[in-house]
Design a binder for these strands. Sequence first.
DNA 1: ACTTTTTTTTAGACAAGTCTAAAAAACGAA
DNA 2: TTCGTTTTTTAGACTTGTCTAAAAAAAAGT
Lengths: 221, 221
Amino acid sequence: MLRLTQSEENYLKAIFTLSQDVEGSISTNDLAEKMATKASSVTDMLKKLCEKDLLEYQKYQGCELTNLGSAHALAIIRKHRLWETFLVDKLSFGWDEVHEIAEQLEHIQSTELTDRLDEFLGFPKVDPHGEPIPGKDGRIESVSNRILLSEASVGMKAVIMGVEDDQTEFLQYLNKIGLHLGTPIEVLDKLSFDGSITISMDDRQVQFSITIAKQISIKPL
Amino acid sequence: MLRLTQSEENYLKAIFTLSQDVEGSISTNDLAEKMATKASSVTDMLKKLCEKDLLEYQKYQGCELTNLGSAHALAIIRKHRLWETFLVDKLSFGWDEVHEIAEQLEHIQSTELTDRLDEFLGFPKVDPHGEPIPGKDGRIESVSNRILLSEASVGMKAVIMGVEDDQTEFLQYLNKIGLHLGTPIEVLDKLSFDGSITISMDDRQVQFSITIAKQISIKPL
DNA sequence: ACTTTTTTTTAGACAAGTCTAAAAAACGAA
DNA sequence: TTCGTTTTTTAGACTTGTCTAAAAAAAAGT
Ligand SMILES: [Mn+2]
Ligand SMILES: [Mn+2]
Ligand SMILES: [Mn+2]
Ligand SMILES: [Mn+2]
């Protein structure tokens, strides 16, 4: 069983995440930005991960995870989301407080631990931010029927299904306005020139910028 | 708040543990053995930890933790023992399966997490091996009335209070013979020439070498 | 097609933590 | 006390992951 460093694991996770949104390969620069590091550091790491058959990489061509690399990435994401669930469900943390801690916990190496934690939590399907949790077999249940709030049309009624988890202040803001998973909303208005969107929730009106609307996913009713 | 690497933390913990048994300062060689590394590596690390005021060190004089260093060591030991308790009490691991995992979990940085875990576990006083768990304030409840089984005298009746936790096979052996915390025993015989000791437990007789007897602590009745 | 800009890689450096080999200091026994 | 042994430190090297600066390749604009 290939043993990876924390840094290698973080790279794999970042590449996997970027690949979700993009077709084809991931560019060195995009990865550098995601990892908050320099392109030259990324190049070095890509060579190493390629050497270990975790991804395919050719000079100037970007990279793409192999099946092996994807499996590793999914294992880390599984751990991350299970730990976040533990922190919220069992230790009463807020959803805005758990991402940083899970960034550390995701690197604990013990498949047995991961699987027992999964069982202890009752085999949760999604984490506290609505993200699906990959199973023991590495398969991720597809969350169908979801769209970004930014893509909703005026008049649409929907339920909040997921939010981006990596910005504490964003999540604290959602707390402040009382938005959480399961909250029913209705899209009231959308401004074409800046993409901002007005919704109603709990008989109140709230306006979101396009930036925020892209970080919230909903299920239309 | 001084941020330490995993390696630095492991050194501090090792020095603290060694200091429990020994008066005065810890030698470079003893520490090297404990850390399973070379004396030259230890010297380098001691210089660094001294620089950070975590210990006092002078060439050829060994080292001794400062109050700051002790506080850090106790914080790590607290986390280690709380996590071990979590793994056994909540995830149903055996006491022989948790030490390695706790070696990783002890480095997770979040005081909030540690304290909430403590609460979740019901503020346990001892870990699954009978070792006392330092409190939030860094104080460790002294476990009085305990002696090593190796020091028990013939005819003594006692209860098993603690065992060394870092050798899986040793713990598995204890499982096999049915010895656990709380087991009442009586010392039947002691051989002066090799220190081996015979006890009765559960109406059976078991013989321990001196090596094993030193890894078991008891409370005489 | 040629030039300019952007992206990516290379070259060389550094810090952390480890190692081996050799030197220096401390210890201990005669 | 002196000499041999043990302990400890130093010197120099290696690995991992990062950086800056410069070179090379690719992409874009005219
Ligand atoms: Mn997260
Ligand atoms: Mn991480
Ligand atoms: Mn332990
Ligand atoms: Mn450790």
